[in-house]
C-alpha cells in the first residue's frame, strides 16, 4: 500500500472544544475511503485542515511524504488535493459552463490571462463541456447557478472539483439534503469517479458508505475511534455501540 495522504498528530482546538484530536490518518493511493461519525464529530473540520481552509493547532499533513501543512489552499489544489462542500459553495452569478471553464483554465495556469477573451480556447471548452455532460448538467449549462435545482447544484459541486483534476478528492456529504428519489444521480456520479483518483468520502447514509468504501474510518469527538475494512467496521461492537447504535436508535 502506498500512502498518498497522511496526517500526523493533527489537532485543532476551537474555544472550548477539540474538533480534531491527535488524528493519525493514512489514505492509500487509489483508495475509496469513507469517513463516518456522528454530527459534530469533526469530519468537516478534518477536511478544512487537509485543504488549508483552517490551520491546525498542531500536527502535520503529508502528501506523498512531503509536508504541505504550511501551504495555502490554492497551492494544495495545485498539488491535487481538491474538495467539495457539505453546504454548497458555488458561484451563484456564474453559469455551470463559466464555473467549469474557470476551474479548467485555473488548473492550466491560464487564470491570469487578462487580454484573452473568455471562450477562445476550444480544447478548454471541450474539456469543460465534457465534464458537464458526464455529470448530466448539459441541460442547465447556461443557467445562472443560483437558480439551479438543488440536486443539480450538488452535482455541480462535484463537477467543479473534477475539473481541477484531483489526485485526492475529499467529498463532504455529497448527497446531503438531496431528496431520496434524486440521490441515485449523485451516487452514480460518485461511483463513476475515475479509478486513479483517491477518494475520501464523508457520508451519513450507511448504504452509500458500505457500497462505496473499501476502507472506513470512524471519527468520534474529534478522535479516530476505529478503522478497517467495511466488514471489520460492521462487525466492531464498539462502533455499533457508539455510532451505528445511535443510528439504529434514531431509526
Amino acid at each position: 500500500m502506498t500512502v498518498v495522504l497522511e496526517t500526523i498528530d493533527l489537532t485543532k482546538r476551537f474555544a472550548g472544544i477539540v474538533a480534531a484530536n491527535n488524528i493519525a490518518l493514512r489514505i492509500a493511493r487509489g483508495a475509496r475511503h469513507a469517513l463516518i461519525g456522528p454530527n459534530g464529530a469533526g469530519k468537516t473540520t478534518l477536511i478544512n485542515l487537509l485543504t488549508g481552509v483552517q490551520r491546525p493547532t498542531s500536527g502535520r499533513i503529508l502528501l506523498d511524504g512531503e509536508d504541505i501543512s504550511g501551504l495555502p489552499t490554492h497551492e494544495r489544489v495545485g498539488r491535487g488535493i481538491v474538495r467539495t462542500f457539505q453546504i454548497n459553495q458555488l458561484f451563484g452569478d456564474l453559469t455551470p459552463l463559466e464555473t467549469l471553464g474557470l476551474a479548467v483554465s485555473e488548473r492550466r495556469g491560464q487564470g491570469l490571462d487578462w487580454w484573452r477573451i473568455v471562450g477562445t480556447r476550444p480544447d478548454l471548452i471541450t474539456e469543460a463541456v465534457e465534464i458537464l455532460e458526464r455529470f448530466r448538467l448539459t441541460d442547465v449549462i447556461n443557467e445562472r447557478t443560483a437558480v439551479l435545482p438543488y440536486g443539480k447544484q450538488r452535482l455541480l459541486e462535484i463537477a467543479v472539483a473534477i475539473a481541477c483534476r484531483p489526485r485526492v478528492l475529499l467529498l463532504d456529504e455529497p448527497a446531503a439534503g438531496v431528496p431520496e428519489d434524486e440521490r441515485h444521480e449523485i451516487l452514480r456520479a460518485v461511483a463513476a469517479l475515475p479509478a486513479d483518483v483517491t477518494v475520501l468520502l464523508i457520508e451519513h447514509d450507511m448504504d452509500i458508505v458500505f457500497s462505496f468504501a473499501d476502507r472506513i474510518s470512524v471519527l468520534v469527538s474529534g478522535a479516530l475511534f476505529a478503522e478497517g475494512t467495511p466488514e471489520e467496521i460492521a462487525r466492531d461492537p464498539r462502533v455499533k455501540a457508539v455510532y451505528l447504535g445511535e443510528e439504529i436508535v434514531d431509526a
Binding site: 489544489v77 462542500f85 491570469l112
Partner: peptide, 22 residues
C-alpha cells in the same frame, strides 16, 4: 478575460475560488 471571470469568482465566493486553485 479569464482573469476577469476569476475576479467575479473571488467576489462571489472566495472560499470556493480558492478551492479551485485561485
Amino acid at each position: 478575460s479569464p482573469f476577469g471571470l476569476s475576479l467575479l469568482a473571488v467576489k462571489g465566493n472566495p472560499l470556493r475560488a480558492s478551492a479551485i486553485g485561485v
